[in-house]
Design a protein around this nucleic acid. Structure first.
Lengths: 341, 341
DNA sequence: TTGAAAGCGCTAACAA
DNA sequence: TTGTTAGCGCTTTCAA
């Protein structure tokens, strides 16, 4: 039934060694004749090598493990494409797991992947297992963080500059005449992305002559389903708010819903800049000004970094790649209809 | 460095067999003492078994291969979640590949996955490799089709009833007073989903007393970037069109863009029902009536079907599971503002 | 230029 | 109740 290297060897009348060598190309001095015989036998038997046995022997599987925590957000789809394409180009396969932000799942998957002898791991950390990450780092296991950074842990990371992203967004709003800019965000103690976007917001406010007293933070519970109401409540309580920096594309939808419900015209009464460019942003009413994150590139870079690490044996210093966010101006921020008065 | 079963055996002063048996739980009659010793050694050495070696011996990897063709569409994210969760629950891991609708890629990945000894494959077929699918089916390799069906090939499939989905959508539009209903779709000869949605459209038209002459088909090139213009052109050419059945969520965005550009009020002048429920559908203007496909369930069912197949040795008849689409009524179809005149 | 043989880490007959 | 032994399919010294 199953055809092995031994079958090929027998048919080609050579040894298994010879077959192996020829198939793996590390055989400078094989005779034309032998090569031909082997290749022909391979062809005739439709042989293809068992990657398990190969991996067991060579201690290399050419598989990369991937632990993500949120497939729902389309941002991650883009990242996944970058990961996928780059793996293909470099000859790796991808084993994918979803921690769902659960630290126990994350730990389990990390262990599973290692048991499966993946050559390295790309991790979107829940950030709730610092000890675990440290242990992995110490063991010099090839892995890289993606999207979120943990400054205390010596691990290569590929992230987007979220401080800058927040800054660009808020600075843009202020530049076009807004003063009462609120930031709309999830409550989350762990994660760098949101802390950084908030920091960017604060920096932009301060850089434009405002003080801490001008900060307006609207905090949402990530998994509540009354988010629109929560936003409406805040908007009613602070009617002076004339702009919102939304830190996430789902929040943006809720903000638009809230504004519509309250009869606030956008961008006139309420301007909006949102994190995460999406396919639908430009079709909303009004079309939404967004901060685009280079997701594909992030995936690409993560794989490249990891593969470098794998091939080099993992003795270098961890690297941190920080990618640039980009502002995409549409109608919602008010810039398009802005006139110097 | 690397700790193997032999190390554990030595430390626990038993044989490798005993360790293996205890760790795999198929050992009813081990003495308390032995179990304790083994478990302790495992603990102390922080041993965890090499899945490669295990798989090589047992010819079971507990890995399922997945070949998708379009990660971009959020529908697939939902499917992926269903696949992922179910794999986890059943003790499988997922190796994921993206054919990008390219038949050569598809063939390569199918081969790669088999070389890696995955226990089975879930395939979203490009439908361009019928011979290949047939060969796999004949070899009784455990695999299942997802989302698209190929009636001529004897393979288990998990799909959504797209004829019904098309019918529901169009019937709903007609029921609320529309007569000149156009279908907006990609030109594609291969794929069942689109053929089926078109068939549903036709069925609904005919069932409501219309004839073939009433069919209005707007065909788009899938990868063109002037789709909105193409739609506008058709809409101008046939101003009698009072409703559109959009067969895909990207097309829907283009239709809304086109209507806005032409100053057509929705739903008054142009009603719309769209395939694929999305997070953003209800935030568009007007909120879009959609056909929801049970993506999560599709993923779930596909894995269950495949695992059944794997465990049973694959001797039964292929099964076809057909999932039910569901209409989600919002403002764009005009039903909410409809009055019997 | 090629082959024999050992062994990667594990499991499963068969023995004891 | 436990151990011995023989591989799973491949690669890789080492020898010829």
């Amino acid at each position: 039934m199953k055809v092995t290297i031994a079958d090929v060897a027998k048919r080609a009348q050579v040894s298994k060694t010879t077959v192996s060598r020829i198939l793996n190309g590390n055989y400078a001095h094989a005779s034309e004749e032998t090569i031909r015989k082997v290749l022909q036998a391979v062809e005739e038997l439709n042989y293809s090598p068992n990657a398990l046995a190969k991996g067991l022997k060579s201690m290399r599987t050419h598989v990369i493990g991937l632990v993500l925590s949120n497939l729902k957000n389309p941002f991650w789809t883009t990242v996944l494409e970058g990961l996928e394409d780059t793996c293909r180009d470099l000859g790796y396969h991808l084993m994918i797991c979803n921690s769902n932000e659960d630290p126990d799942m994350e730990e389990k998957y990390l262990k599973d992947l290692r048991d499966r002898q993946v050559d390295g791991i790309i991790l979107h950390p829940t950030c709730k297992n610092p000890k675990l990450y440290e242990r992995l780092a110490e063991q010099r296991y090839p892995f890289v963080f993606i999207n979120r950074r943990m400054p205390d842990i010596r691990v290569s990371s590929v992230v987007v500059d979220n401080i800058k992203g927040g800054f660009i967004a808020v600075n843009h709003l202020i530049r076009y005449g807004r003063r009462k800019v609120a930031i709309c965000m999830y409550r989350n103690e762990f994660v760098s992305t949101w802390k950084d976007r908030l920091e960017g917001y604060k920096k932009a406010m301060l850089a434009n002559g405002m003080t801490e007293d001008d900060f307006i933070m609207i905090e949402l519970e990530q998994h509540a389903d009354n988010q629109q109401e929560a936003i409406m409540r805040q908007l009613k309580k602070r009617p002076e708010i004339d702009a919102i920096f939304s830190t996430n594309n789902m929040i943006t939808l809720e903000v638009i819903g809230a504004a519509r419900e309250l009869g606030l015209s956008m961008p006139e009464q309420l301007a909006l800049v949102s994190y995460d460019e999406t396919v639908w942003a430009k079709y909303l009413d009004p079309p939404v000004t967004t901060i685009r994150q280079p997701g594909y590139k992030m995936g690409q870079t993560a794989v490249q970094t990891l593969v470098d690490r794998i091939l080099s044996g993992g003795d270098e210093e961890p690297t941190v790649v920080m990618l640039e966010p980009e502002l995409i101006v549409r109608a919602s921020c008010g810039a398009m209809s802005f006139h110097i008065s």
